[in-house]
Amino acid sequence: MFCVFNALGQISFAFAGHAVALEIQATIPSTPESPSKVPTWKGALGAYFINAICYFPVALIGYWAFGQDVDDNVLVNLKKPVWLIASANLMVVIYIIGSYQVYAILVFELLDRMMVKKINFPPGIALRLIARSSYVAYTLFVGITFPFFGDLLGFFGGFGFSPTSYSPSIMWLVIKKPKRFSAKWIISWSCIFVGFFIMLPSTIGGFRNIIADASTYSFYT
Rank of each mutant, 00 (worst) to 15 (best):
V4N: 06
F5Q: 04
G9D: 09
A14H: 02
V20H: 03
T27M: 08
I28P: 04
P29I: 06
T31D: 04
T31V: 03
S36H: 09
P39V: 10
P39C: 11
T40S: 11
A47N: 04
A47P: 01
Y48S: 03
A52Y: 15
A52S: 11
C54F: 14
Y55L: 07
Y55I: 01
Q68S: 14
N77Y: 12
K80A: 13
V82C: 01
M91Y: 12
G98L: 06
S99F: 00
L106S: 15
F108Q: 05
N120Y: 01
P123H: 10
P123V: 04
A137I: 06
Y138W: 03
F149L: 14
G150I: 10
L152S: 09
L153S: 01
F161I: 08
P163I: 13
P163H: 14
T164C: 07
S165V: 02
S165T: 14
P168E: 04
M171D: 04
W172C: 07
L173R: 05
V174R: 09
K177N: 12
F181W: 15
S182A: 12
A183S: 06
W185T: 00
I186V: 15
G195N: 06
L200I: 13
S202N: 05
R208L: 15
D213K: 12
S215F: 03
Y217Q: 10
F219M: 08
Y220N: 08
